[in-house]
Design a binder for these strands. Structure first.
Lengths: 89, 89
DNA sequence: CTATTATTTAGAAATTCTTCTAATTAGAGT
DNA sequence: ACTCTAATTAGAAGAATTTCTAAATAATAG
């Protein structure tokens, strides 16, 4: 958990693209999968890493699972990056 | 190369710590290695990933190799992260 | 309760990552 | 040229990642 999981989750282009898609609003697992040339199980693994990092949250609606972006954790990553650049001890 | 290598490089805690150490000024490979419980060859591999991502630059001084932080690439990563959060297409 | 739809979990193969020890390269000084 | 110091490259072992197919779970509809 923690900032480690966040940066690890951000390290894969597919996962960054998932976050970019969710930026415009929540999407179901199937809708997200439709944007990639990968199988649903593969996407499911990526969803799990984003969930572990708490970069996304899930909500069930009927038979669908809806993924939401968690912007507060993204901001944590931003803060972490800024701290590598700024003049703070 | 590119943003992909940058996020991949940022995904390991040792490499983020190296960047944090370089934030306060350039350091030699040996000085950097002194901050970790890892062998010098292991650190050398981490240096290489940071170099591939262009997050650091190297300069030789005598027998030492001096590593510098490249803040402009860090800013590229920041921009990339911001784009996942902001309302830009 | 069975069938359907949406998605996940399980298991396996290929690849990449992290780390080590041993050997090599590069520069400086004697 | 030889030696010392600084750091890297090479090779290998173990762990983790990415991806797939096949099977399982969960909720809804008839």
């Amino acid at each position: 958990m923690g900032i480690n999981a966040v940066f690890e989750a951000l390290s894969h282009p597919v996962r960054r693209r998932i976050l970019a898609l969710l930026k415009n609003g929540p999407l179901s697992a199937g809708e997200l999968a439709g944007h990639f040339d990968l199988t649903k199980p593969t996407l499911s693994v990526h969803f799990n890493k984003l969930k572990e990092a708490e970069l996304v949250a899930v909500e069930r609606r009927g038979t669908s699972l809806i993924y939401h972006l968690n912007t507060s954790i993204l901001e944590e990553a931003l803060t972490g990056l800024l701290s590598l650049k700024d003049q703070e001890p």
